[in-house]
Structures are given as structure tokens and as C-alpha cells.
Nucleic acid binder design. Sequence first.
RNA 1: UCCUCCUUAGCUCAGUUGGUUAGAGCACAUGACUGUUAAUCAUGGGGUCUUUGGUUCAAGUCCAAAAGGGGGAGCCA
Length: 468
Amino acid sequence: MKDIKRIEIIELLQGKANAQIGTEICVKGWVRTKRGNKNIAFIALNDGTIIHNIQIVVELEAFNEDILRRITTGACLRVNGKLVESMGQGQNVEIQATEIEIYGEADVDTYPLQKKGHTLEFLREIAHLRPRTNTFGAIFRMRHAMAFAIHKYYNDRGFFYWHSPIITASDAEGAGEMFQVTNLDLKNLPLLPDGSVDYSKDFYGKETSLTVSGQLEGELGAMSLGKIYTFGPTFRAENSNTPRHLSEFWMIEPEMAFYELEDNMNLAEDFIKYLVSYALENCKDDLEFLQNMYDKELIERLKFVVENDFMRLKYTDAIEILLKANQKFEFPIAWGVDLQSEHERYLVEKHFKKPVILIDYPKEIKAFYMKQNNDGKTVRAMDVLFPKIGEIIGGSQREENLDKLVARMKEVGINPDDMKWYLDTRRYGTAPHSGFGLGFERLLLFVTGMVNIRDVIPFPRTPHSAEF
RNA sequence: UCCUCCUUAGCUCAGUUGGUUAGAGCACAUGACUGUUAAUCAUGGGGUCUUUGGUUCAAGUCCAAAAGGGGGAGCCA
């Protein structure tokens, strides 16, 4: 077989290789379908670079029967052939095969992927193979595009990528149940006289867990470098079984010195709009596929978010609206209680019909580090609520006053001595600052139109599920 | 964790008031067709009806439990 430099299929289909029409080229990829008659066969080949396939045309008399029988859906091929303008409808160029090597066969009796008819639930059970489908190829290309856009957005605006630790000894944020990290022998634990575990014998000499948020350490970066963001894995051991929760997920947490709540909101809104615009401009083919297959209003909805201001209002005003709403809610509404999913959905999907930023929540339902308002009742929190997926961002201006912060910690039962390093930011050169957390997979739900968060991460981790 | 629904061919699903040999489409095999686009047409093979226990002359179908999965809720991003 002639040794020809491989060309990626995206180059062929976007016309970047048109100068080579009429010459012999080489492509490599996986077979999506094969069809034809006794004279000719058509192979749709995909190499993951783009959602579309290149058509390989095979004149059967030029190849032996055996090799064609072994070319089935899922097989991996190296193909040499002449790049030509297509004689058929549906594609501009195609390849007239001259030589084919089969890198790997895919046994039709056991290969689980077929040309059509798979549910997302079935594909979830074969997560190691599902990236080979059109749907998951599109999703994971978009996942990459969004990750890249996040770094580009912050880098272009002078933010520094800051790495908060994955393993942490602080359990102060109260953001959920934590996964413990230990190298103690669980069948033979060192015990203290009172029967509790002696963590001084553990690897770090104290009890440690996987992080539930990089924020507290992120604040340390903001109070020195000015503007930072984290983007890393986050772990919550909550027994949450919903289409919106993972026990291992990725979160983006910008933290900015000298930003007040208003600045924080402006950043959050601009950030999301940038990411959605980036998807519209750079993921067109994948978006069109997902729109056709799953969500007819996807692109329209993305454009709407980019083109319209988010609605901003105070928690207290939201309660007023809900109390006046001509709709029955399962959970009663009263000032001081946290909003339920049904309430958030009413505000976003029915009342305002656009994304909503809610601010100034009662302090009792928010974390200890949020800046206290002068009314003594509310804090400078902000939640960004989106249609269909609910809370996509949670953030706040932080309490920079040492005395107020310590007082609040004591009220909620956190020992300030355990967080000396955190309080030092307020003790020495404190400053107003703000930040928020964006759930990466929730963003992906929105931009892909998928409805289950397990379908926007390659290998989802949920209660009782850590396969692959 | 709570509520609710589902589990029948490799995949997606039908299956009537419980009644003889459980069906279809796709996939697969064989054949037909001079270029297909989820190709089409014909023929064929393919089943421990999730598991366990129960009711009944008789269970895919009714009852109970378990396992796996979906949706809703809570917790949150």
C-alpha cells in the first residue's frame, strides 16, 4: 500500500484540500455505514474531526470480496484514493478508493453500535463507545470548545488561572457531603482511647477530603493577583439522583479583588453570553445536528440569551411576584424560605421568560462568607437562573470585614480557629471582593440542549455508578 | 434519600378481559438492483419475556420482594 500522508476529514469537507482534487490522498477513520449494490459500495467514514462523514466509493471488481465483507459499521480503515468532486447528491467531494487497509474489524455480532435507533440511556451503559456516535461526538467537541473558550475569555481579560487544591482539610464551606481521602487501612483503623479514629496517623496527619469548592483558596489568589479563576474537578458525596447532579463535576470559579456585587453580576452575564456566542460561532455543525435530532429551538434559544439582558431583581421582590402569581405551588412561599425549583422555574420560564439574576437573599439560607447588607437580614448573594436547568451560577460579594465574618462563623457553628489562613485575608490588607461558581456541565446542558447531565461528561460519576 | 413509572430478539418497541406455536421495524445472513445518502425490495436465522417467590387448571400478562434504569422532589453547580 502506498505511503501517503493522512489528511483529516474536516480538511476535505471544509474545502481546505480542494487543491488536491484529482490527486491520490489518504484518510483514516471509523466506518459509520456501508451500502451499495453488486457493482459499487459506499462507505461513510468518520475520524472525529467533524460531525460529517467523507464518502468512500469502492468499485467492487477492484477489491477482493473478503476485505469488503470485513468492512462493517465500527471498523477502522486506512484508505488511499483519488479525491474527486462527487457524482451524487449530499456531498461536494468523495474519495474513489484505490487501496484499503483494515486497521481493526468490528464484529457485527458483538459491536453494540448500529446505524440508528439507540437511546441515550442505552448509550450511557456503553460510555466507552458512545463518543463514536454523532450525538456524543458533537457533545464532546462542544465540551472542548467551551473549555477552551473559558480559558480564552479570562486570559483575554487579565485573569490568572489559579489552581486550588483537590485535596483539602477544610470542611467549612458546608457546600455538601465530602468524599474522605485516606490511606489508613480501613480494616484496621488506628483508634484513640475514646474509640474515634486517630487521624494523626493518616497520610496528612489530619482528616482530609476531596474539594467541594475551590473558592476559599481562590479568594487567596484574588487578594494577591487581583483577578483569578479556577477550573477544575469538584466532588460532592450527596446522594443526589437527578438529571442535573454529578458527584464528580467541573466548576469554574472566578474571584476578583475590588469587584462589588454589581461588577460580579456584570461579569457573570458577560461571561455566559461570551460562551454562548462562542458556541454559536464555532460549533455550527454540531449545534445544527443537535437541534435537528433533539431540540428544535436550540439555536434560537442560544441567540435569545446572547441578545437579551438578564433580568436582575432582589429576592424580596421575587417573593412579592410569587405571592401574587396566579398559580398554585406545591411549596408555600414566604419571605425567608429558600426558593424551590418550581418557584425558580415560574420566574424564569413564565414570568420574565429570560435568564434571571436574583440577589440579596436572606442570610440564613446562604453561606457564612457572603457580605452582610446593612439591613441585618440579607446578604449580597447572587444566583443566575436559567430556563430548563435552573441554577447555573451561584456567587456573592464576600464579607471583607473580619469582625462581621467571625461573628457569622460563630453563629453557624464554624470554629474561626480552624480557618486562620482564610481569615488572614481579612486580617491583613482586606479588600472588597466577589466571585461566583459556574457549573461546567450545567453550561453544557444549556448549549447542547441535552437534558441529562450524564450525557455531557464522558464518564459520569453518580451514586452507585463509577463504571469505566 | 422520598414519590412515581419502566424492564419482552443485538437495538427500539407492540403484545387485547390471564388461554394453543410471543410479533414488528432496524441490525445480521442470502439474493436482486449501474451511484447510494438512515439506500430500497425479497427471503431467512435469531427469545430462560430482568431475577426470586406466590396466586391459578393455565402467567409476558395478576400479587410481593430484589436488581437495574427513566422522570419528579430534596441537596446544590
